[in-house]
Amino acid sequence: MKKFILMLLLAVSSASVWAQTPKVVISDKDGWHKIGETVVSLDKETDKIIIVGANRFASVKIKVTEAPIRLESFDIFFDNNQTKNVKIGQEIKHEGETAVVDLGGEKNITKVEFYYHTIGDDKSKKAHVELWGLKTNPNK
C-alpha cells in the first residue's frame, strides 16, 4: 500500500511539472523579444513561464490584453539561484503594460512567476499576459 501511495504521489507531482511547457527563446538580436505568454482565468491567482534557450535579458516588462488583471507582483528567477521580486500592486488594463524593470545588466532568466487577481465576474474573459525581455548584447 505504501508503495502504491508513493507511486501515485510521484505521478501527480510529475504531471504538474510537465504541465508547464518551457518557452524557448531563439533570437539573440538586440531589442525587445516576447519571451513567453500565458492565459489567466478566474480560477487561479498564480502562473509561471519557464524559459530556456537564449535567455539573457537586461530588462523585462509585462503586457496584458483581452481582459484586465490586478498584478500584485512577479518573481524573476535567475540561473545563479538568485531571485528578484518586483512589486506592482496595480490594475493593468487590457492593452496595458507595466513599467520596464531593469535587471542591472543582461542576466539569464530561468523562470518568472506572476501573482495576480482577475477583475470582473465574466468567466469567459481571460487575460492574455505576455512577458517581454530586452536584449542589449553588451559583449558584441
Rank of each mutant, 00 (worst) to 15 (best):
K44W: 06
A58P: 08
T21D: 05
G36W: 03
S14F: 15
E97K: 09
G133S: 03
N55F: 04
I5T: 11
N85F: 02
K48D: 13
Y115G: 01
K44C: 04
E130G: 00
V12C: 08
L8Q: 11
G36D: 09
K29G: 08
A67K: 06
V17M: 15
N85R: 08
Y115N: 09
R70E: 13
V64D: 00
G133W: 04
R56F: 12
K23P: 00
E91V: 04
F74V: 02
S73M: 04
T110N: 10
P22C: 10
L6D: 10
G120T: 10
A54S: 15
V12W: 11
E45Y: 13
D47G: 05
Y116L: 07
A127R: 01
T118H: 14
H117K: 15
G36S: 10
V39F: 07
D43M: 07
D30A: 06
G133R: 03
T98R: 00
F114W: 07
F74W: 08
A54Y: 02
G31M: 12
L103V: 01
L42N: 14
L9F: 06
G31E: 12
G105E: 08
T38R: 15
G120Y: 03
K140Q: 00
D75F: 11
V25L: 12
N81F: 14
S59F: 11
E130A: 08
S41C: 11
G53L: 06
V52I: 14
I50H: 08
K140N: 02
K23R: 09
F4H: 09
H128N: 14
W18C: 13
A58L: 06
D43L: 09
